[in-house]
């Protein structure tokens, strides 16, 4: 199982990576949308977790790219500290599988991730 996590904050990446890595799950990280696409093409992840508020390319923009051109079959979970209803709706409307608000509840994180990949 390969999970790609995209966030411009290295601490968040490290924390999520640590939380989700186990014997049959590998976590790969990217710091921005452009790198994320490159990495995704390399490793073909089973799940993508993506922050919304990022410089250069916003998470929603990345979500659109993924769904339209590259990886429409791969489930994407969006996360953001901007916990507004319209942000959640926008993400889901653009094709995200689920939405986490930040700060992340790491306790529930792995359970919800399992839900998404099945």
């Amino acid at each position: 199982m390969k999970i790609l996590v995209v966030d411009d904050d290295p601490l968040t990446l490290t924390a999520i990576s640590h939380c989700l890595t186990n014997d049959d799950t590998e976590v790969v990280t990217a710091g921005n949308g452009f790198d994320a696409i490159k990495v995704a093409q390399d490793i073909s992840p089973d799940l993508i977790i993506c922050d919304i508020l990022m410089p250069d390319m916003s998470g929603l923009g990345l979500l659109c790219l993924l769904k339209q051109f590259y990886f429409d079959k791969v489930p994407v979970i969006m996360m953001s500290s901007l916990d507004k209803a319209d942000m959640i709706l926008a993400s889901l409307g653009l094709g995200a599988e689920d939405f986490f608000s930040k700060p992340i509840d790491f306790g529930k994180l792995s359970a919800r991730v399992k839900n998404c990949i099945g």
Binding site: L11, T12, L53, P103
Partner: peptide, 10 residues
């Protein structure tokens, strides 16, 4: 300031 929030929280 917004970006610093996660680090401070951790």
């Amino acid at each position: 300031a917004h970006k610093m929030k996660p680090s401070l929280a951790f």
